[in-house]
Simulated assay, not measured.
Amino acid sequence: MAKRRSTLGAVIRELRNSNNWTLREMSERTGIPVSTLSKVEHNRLTLTYDKLQELSARLNIRMSDLFAESDAPPPVASVTARRSLGTRDNAFRVQTANYDYYYLCAELRRKRMIPNITTIRARSLDEFGELVHHAGEEFIYVLKGQIVVHTEFYDPVTLEPGESIYIDSNMGHAYLAGPDCEEAVTLAVMSSADDDLMDSLITMHGER
């Protein structure tokens, strides 16, 4: 049987998962930024020879192990029965200049959907700053107030309570409180093939 050649991203992800490390924990061990590790794992970026040497030294593995071939069949997805009850009181809160995020059901790791309640305060693009980009897709439903949605390729749109929008998150976007309210509250659901989407989002908030 022919061996299946693993990509560098697959090898790094397998190594991280076998040690039960988050992207942030692996970043701390390797000195490579979380955003870079995430891109490498999803084959959107590679590492230079010097970085590969540093990675193998810090993780105490042979450099050749980063280019290993595998004759194992692709893993079969297992059936899971997870559940989590989320409230604003037990949410994981992240506060930024523009938003307050309340991440719901945060104890579940490697979720493909990230639900959160967001309080939006910024009222202009000058106040908000650069448009945000990240992997995946997202759905926004207005619970309270009024929001103005700015996106990279469309004219701004104003949404009232009970209205919603669905966008590709890699398109630049910003959610602003409407001119008729001091702040707005939305329910948002982000989704991505990235197993560590929540880590990536939190890191992005921190960088901002």
Rank of each mutant, 00 (worst) to 15 (best):
A57D: 14
L197I: 05
P73W: 04
D155S: 14
R5Y: 05
P73E: 12
S124F: 07
L59D: 03
R121K: 13
Y102E: 09
Y141A: 00
N60F: 03
M26F: 10
A68V: 08
V11A: 09
P115N: 05
E54F: 01
S56F: 01
D180F: 04
D196F: 14
N43Q: 00
L125K: 06
H42F: 06
P115T: 01
V76D: 13
M63I: 15
A77Y: 14
M171T: 09
G9E: 04
M113I: 13
H150D: 08
R109K: 15
R13A: 10
H134Y: 11
G172K: 05
M63V: 13
C105P: 06
A177C: 08
T80Y: 13
R121T: 10
G178F: 02
L108Q: 11
R123K: 14
K144N: 02
G86S: 12
N60T: 03
G86C: 08
S27T: 05
L8D: 08
L131K: 07
E130H: 12
I32R: 10
L15W: 15
I120V: 15
I147H: 00
S78R: 15
I167Q: 07
R88M: 14
N19Y: 10
A10D: 10
E160F: 01
H42Q: 14
R13Y: 03
F67W: 07
T186D: 03
Y175D: 05
R112Q: 08
A2Y: 09
A177M: 01
S191W: 00
R4F: 05
P73H: 09
S192Q: 05
I12M: 15
P73F: 05
V157C: 03
D126T: 13
F128K: 07
M113H: 07
E182C: 01
K111H: 02
V34E: 09
D180V: 01
H150T: 03
D126H: 10
R13K: 12
V185Q: 10
V11C: 08
T119Q: 12
A81E: 12
C181P: 01
S56T: 02
G129A: 08
E54K: 11
E138N: 05
I140C: 11
L159N: 00
L131W: 09
E137A: 12
S35M: 12
F153M: 06
D50E: 13
T158A: 01
D89A: 14
F92N: 11
D155M: 10
G31C: 06
V132R: 14
R83T: 14
D100H: 08
E130V: 12
S27K: 03
L197N: 00
V40N: 03
R24Q: 11
P115A: 06
K51A: 13
I114C: 03
M113E: 04
L85Q: 13
Y154L: 11
G145S: 04
D71M: 07
Y166C: 08
S78A: 15
R121P: 02
G31W: 06
I32Y: 08
L176R: 07
S6E: 15
L104Y: 06
T22I: 06
I165S: 03
V132S: 11
V94I: 08
R58Y: 00
N19L: 11
S35R: 14
A184W: 00
G31F: 04
